[in-house]
Design a protein around this nucleic acid. Structure first.
Lengths: 239, 239
DNA sequence: AGGAACACGTGACGC
DNA sequence: TGCGTCACGTGTTCC
């Protein structure tokens, strides 16, 4: 520990106290290249140092204290940021900043995408999943999934259940109904911090598609007959 | 600049080089309190230093170089973050981190809210604006605005125009239609970096309400008569 | 040992 | 001038 020597000097040369002897004292010097000999740094800057000027010492002390306060502010904000990223502990200071950058980019892209697009339900049943953004660099992944079918009471809860099972995060869900038909559009991304899924891109896409298709089939299986009997509207399946 | 003295020593005592030039050379020493005299720091740690050991010098050099690389990594990420916050330049390093924290909090809260809620249009026209979140600390501000009225072709474009004029950011827009009636629900927040608006909270709320009400009135003024004549459904106004 | 990561004090620069 | 911020080299600790 090379800390606290300024305090020692302060106590030695300033007002208070008796014990001005035999404290372990350190001081940094410079090897002057011009003259080729060791001199005190302050001496090289043109100061007289017969008695160490208390003003300079005090200034140096306040300087280091200010610098410590600055460090504490920055580090406090860094720990706050650690609390905002998924894998908070055991992370390099630089890696932490990189993770924060990734998060901000993803969230901003999501917010940008979340404010556009409108769709109306068509007569044909359909489920489609497309990749809107896939930045391999930061693992950003944005999917647009839509399901169009007839309305039934438990449709929404089925969809919600499917979303939960998929462990994905829904950035935006849009539902439009038109004459008993309903089209739901989702903007989804992988759960926070699940950047590992970026590699399993196709797996995620196909699983989302499968989940929505299952919902579609459930509609058909349970109500197709009755539906066809009472309102024989033409219907076609699109994968 | 007190940089480069290690390189000078390296060139003095090591094999390579010619063109190392007359740089001012410094060295940090310690004032040993135990013996009361100046010694080299390495000497105090139990080393012999008759000829400055090239190994120690080299280690010190690589150490400072590694530290410089580390600093460069961190600072590079910091400049990247500067590009992601609104007022990028002329910002304190600590203040920058605070701003990033604020951004992340807002975006996360927005993303969380953007994935819940569903509404169906009622028979009564209505426009309502409510405050979902208003964290005075970081200026986080989240509003839920909804408009319910009859459908008309230019309704959506009118709404979009109003949103643009208000300079707000739409996190989520939900539209549900039911039998010619349409209800649109918006989750909005102040534009990025417009934290100054947090103080003008009521102003924002009332302006949003006014904008939506104007859309409602436009519907009534232009089509009320015809609407009433052809399909005299009962209608009531709710502010 | 030997690199990686952190906190510290210090010189320099700007207001 | 004094105060705040930055980059630098260094001491220290952990693996």
């Amino acid at each position: 520990m090379h800390n606290g020597w300024i305090e020692s000097l302060m106590s030695m040369y300033c007002e208070n106290q008796s014990s001005r002897n035999s404290m372990p004292v350190k001081h940094s010097l410079v090897l002057d290249g011009d003259k080729g000999e060791l001199v005190k740094a302050s001496e090289r800057m043109g100061k007289k140092i017969g008695v160490p000027e208390t003003k300079t010492i005090a200034a140096l002390k306040s300087h280091s204290e200010a610098e410590r306060r600055r460090r504490e502010r920055i580090n406090a904000h860094l720990v706050t940021l650690r609390g905002l990223v998924p894998n908070n502990e055991k992370m390099d200071k630089a890696t932490l900043l990189a993770e924060v950058i990734c998060q901000v980019k993803q969230l901003r892209a999501a917010a940008r995408q979340a404010s556009e697009g409108l769709h109306i339900p068509m007569d044909a049943d359909e489920v489609q999943v497309e990749i809107l953004e896939h930045n391999g660099g930061d693992g950003s992944l944005l999917l647009r999934a839509s399901l169009c079918c007839d309305y039934r009471p438990d449709l929404l809860s089925d969809i919600r259940q499917a979303i939960n099972d998929l462990h994905i995060q829904v950035l935006k869900s849009e539902i439009s109904t038109l004459g008993g038909r309903v089209k739901t559009v989702f903007l989804v991304t992988t759960g926070e911090g699940d950047n590992g899924y970026a590699a399993q891109l196709e797996v995620l896409v196909s699983s989302v598609r499968a989940a929505l298709s299952k919902i579609l089939d459930k509609v058909s299986a349970s109500t197709e007959y009755a539906q066809e009997l009472f309102s024989p509207r033409k219907r076609q399946r699109v994968s």
